[in-house]
Design a protein around this nucleic acid. Sequence first.
DNA 1: ACGTGCACTTGACATAGGACAGGAAATGGA
DNA 2: TCCATTTCCTGTCCTATGTCAAGTGCACGT
Lengths: 193, 193
Amino acid sequence: MNKDSLIQFIQKILPMNPSRAAQVVEKFKPMKIEKNSYVLKAGTVCNESHFIETGIIRSYTYDLDGNEVTTAFYPTNTYSSDLLSFFKRTPAKEYIQAITDCETWYITYEDMQASFHAIPEFREFGRLNIVNQYSILKERMLSNLQETAEKRYNDLIHSHPEILQQVPLKYIASYLGIADTSLSRIRKETVKK
Amino acid sequence: MNKDSLIQFIQKILPMNPSRAAQVVEKFKPMKIEKNSYVLKAGTVCNESHFIETGIIRSYTYDLDGNEVTTAFYPTNTYSSDLLSFFKRTPAKEYIQAITDCETWYITYEDMQASFHAIPEFREFGRLNIVNQYSILKERMLSNLQETAEKRYNDLIHSHPEILQQVPLKYIASYLGIADTSLSRIRKETVKK
DNA sequence: ACGTGCACTTGACATAGGACAGGAAATGGA
DNA sequence: TCCATTTCCTGTCCTATGTCAAGTGCACGT
């Protein structure tokens, strides 16, 4: 396991010369995470930020009635952490859990701050990365308003077919904001068409 | 009208020495915005980022059924723009509209990029500002899941009483994700208590 | 290969919340 | 000042979704 895909991910967000990139990824360390185990638990402060080399991770929390609600999926080659808790140093309100066995590259808050300080390119990467995360969140908020659950389901499995393969439908349903029975009915309708 | 409150806002997010702060705010220009007029219309690219000196601004879009949905309120002393459109240079999906007469300090995308390049402190301010915006969005998403409309209504008017004074209830209702008739019923219940 | 437990589907039923419409009160323009 | 418009409240009705429960099929461990 080497850092190539992490370097590619960073280069895609902010192109830089290879030696700089090597410097940026220097503090990232490998981690193996077993299926169903936790990267972060609600109530604790998120202290690591993970780039997912293989596997799928999700974050979830509980709604008013105590139902589990999946707030995000993090497939392979994405960046996963509770940014709110990580940067604000406040207790997380979400759980982050591996859906499959995962391998990640992670960096601690302290190392990230040090690297922010030492490497201007890392700072700029950090800024662009947050803009991206903000965009994803905002797009999701808007699509929740502006698209039907059916369209959002189709968009999701189109853009990330691996999620459909590896994630229980109940997680997908709660991510879409509907009951698993409703998703079941949507799938039934979709097959008809 | 001087830039004191803008400088205070910036100093609060990232303290810096006064001459630096002066440099940071240099490119901000004043604008007066009439009640009900638009700062940004959906379909166009957001090219200005506003700090609100006086007045209240809101952003809104339309849901599936064509209903107006208020996506955010920007009271006095906050920072308002469609960050998604502004940074990604994509057409906005939202309208940004003055609820009252407003005075703002704004900076264009080009000037901001130039200042990002020239002033390291501005870059860092930009990064912290996005973290804040991300946090606000995420907190809002979570409170939509985890709190009743009644609690969210009370939280809103507690933290920003001026909104209740100056904003039509129907905007507040759509911001809370409920019909204006439902908000009316909530208010009725609240009075009883 | 047997049993236990998930994952998923489906039907019957209940209900929270929205749509709609009517009316009172407040606001604003001429 | 008066009329038009908008805001807000409230009653009735209705429907989209969720809840619950039952049943099938599959995967996994022993």
